[in-house]
Design a protein around this nucleic acid. Structure first.
Lengths: 149, 149
DNA sequence: CACGAAGATGCATTTTAAGTGTATCTTTTA
DNA sequence: TAAAAGATACACTTAAAATGCATCTTCGTG
């Protein structure tokens, strides 16, 4: 059981932006800091922008910035919106055709468990993830602290 | 977010066996009923046997049978043991090297959520999944009801 | 106003974990 | 002793995720 890197990095991008609220952060910088491909960061950021979590400005001096207060960004919300699918098992899908579907209660049990998972994440906001801002900034290291010369 | 078919079918095999307690069920029969590869069912069953959930007997007239009472088989237990990994995101892995690791609380939040997910499944046993045994048997259909001629 | 820095978009390719296929061995009963 | 069943091992395929590349748009600055 795992979550896609897509969602994982969406959260990390938000953490990064939350840790550097005083300036705009570029996609290049994020990709290099986390050592993943720019394309992937692009896709993630694009969705974060279109969902209203992040504001992206183009052109020289542009970059990314949070578009909401960290305390107003729920981790559960982000995961729900970014993760491509929550069809835990085959029988969650309409066309599954599992012979057991209407007789068994597995689907219901897994659905309840999934709700419990997401509810736990709903208790946490981005603000909770970045309480120790100085430390985070320190971990982000050279790149984050020395943008472009 | 999803669970592997491996775990999904492990549960379905147990449901199948729980629905047909009066006889031995062959791997061939399970594979054909669920329309998946024999190899995959093999691997799943082998693990279920080695974990003590199922008893497999070889030779003519052999097959599979539950090795514990359905009420003594927890869904959470099965999922924990069968699912290959619960490293929800990169930073769960020791060698991840995520720069944020020690400063951020994402890992903790996801871990808590995962525990909530599994705890919800711990509330359910195989017996709960097969309460409507006659209906299940009916759904399993021709193959299950007419083993080999 | 042109150039360069940034994000936006789209598509093709690569990677990798999950699932499948095939072969061979072992056990059991008729 | 032959056929039916599970056990084991390894090679192959598939599909989703991630990456790479090309091109377009927007914006600020000299």
């Amino acid at each position: 059981m795992q979550i896609t890197q897509y969602t994982d990095y969406a959260l990390r991008v938000l953490i990064y932006l939350g840790a550097c609220p005083e300036r705009r952060v570029t996609i290049k910088e994020v990709a290099e800091t986390f050592d993943i491909s720019r394309s992937h960061v692009m896709k993630i950021v694009n969705q974060l922008v279109s969902l209203g979590f992040v504001e992206g400005t183009r052109g020289k001096g542009g970059g990314l910035r949070l578009n909401r207060a960290p305390a107003a960004i729920g981790v559960g919300e982000v995961v729900r919106l970014m993760e491509p699918g929550f069809d835990l098992v085959d029988c969650f899908r309409a066309e599954s055709g599992c012979l057991l579907s209407s007789g068994c209660r597995l689907k219901g049990a897994l659905h309840t468990a999934l709700q419990a998972f997401l509810a736990a994440l709903d208790e946490v906001t981005l603000a909770d993830l970045i309480v120790n801002q100085p430390r985070l900034r320190n971990m982000l290291g050279v790149i984050a602290l020395n943008p472009s010369p």
